[in-house]
């Protein structure tokens, strides 16, 4: 059991979903995966299936149509999970603060653990965000284990 849980923190799998931003952050997240920033050296892997993911990377100011998709993705991700909101519009709506079809931030729909600033967020900032997210994941994991032991 310890091995599996430790492996999860050492090698988090990332699910990336865009909820209607401008794409700038999305390509920066992809740039993180490519040789110059190469987050795979930390054991991170971008995958397409929420059921395998530990970290959700969400960009964009969530619109009404996307809201349910996002809720479903969040529900499908197994616990413990960490949500990173990447970019200004994922945090507060940013430049889309007065757009009619946006909800103004990921935290209006699902709980967010880490915010990454910038528009578009730089790859360095995204790596910082992932590092912080891993600490959160570890905290959640240890908290979760204590809770489970207490329940037993």
């Amino acid at each position: 059991m310890g091995f599996l849980k430790r492996a999860r923190v050492k090698s988090p799998w990332i699910l990336h979903y865009c909820t209607g931003g401008c794409n700038g952050c999305d390509i920066e997240i992809l740039a993180c995966l490519t040789p110059l920033y190469d987050v795979e050296r930390f054991g991170m892997l971008n995958i397409g299936n929420p059921k395998h993911a530990d970290v959700l990377m969400i960009t964009g100011p969530v619109n009404w149509k996307n809201r349910e998709v996002l809720q479903r993705l969040y529900a499908q991700t197994p616990d413990p999970k960490v949500v990173i909101a990447v970019g200004a519009c994922a945090a507060t709506g940013g430049v889309f603060h007065n757009c009619v079809n946006t909800l103004g931030g990921v935290d209006k729909v699902i709980p967010v653990d880490v915010y990454v600033r910038g528009c578009a967020a730089r790859p360095e900032a995204i790596i910082d965000g992932v590092v912080l997210a891993l600490q959160k994941l570890e905290e959640k994991r240890s908290g979760g284990v204590a809770h489970a032991a207490g329940a037993r």
């Binding site: 619109n63 009404w64 149509k65 809201r67 009619v100 079809n101």
Partner: peptide
């Protein structure tokens, strides 16, 4: 096509 049921209609 672009809007959902809950968003403002005919914006």
């Amino acid at each position: 096509m672009l809007l959902s049921e809950k968003s403002l209609q005919m914006p």
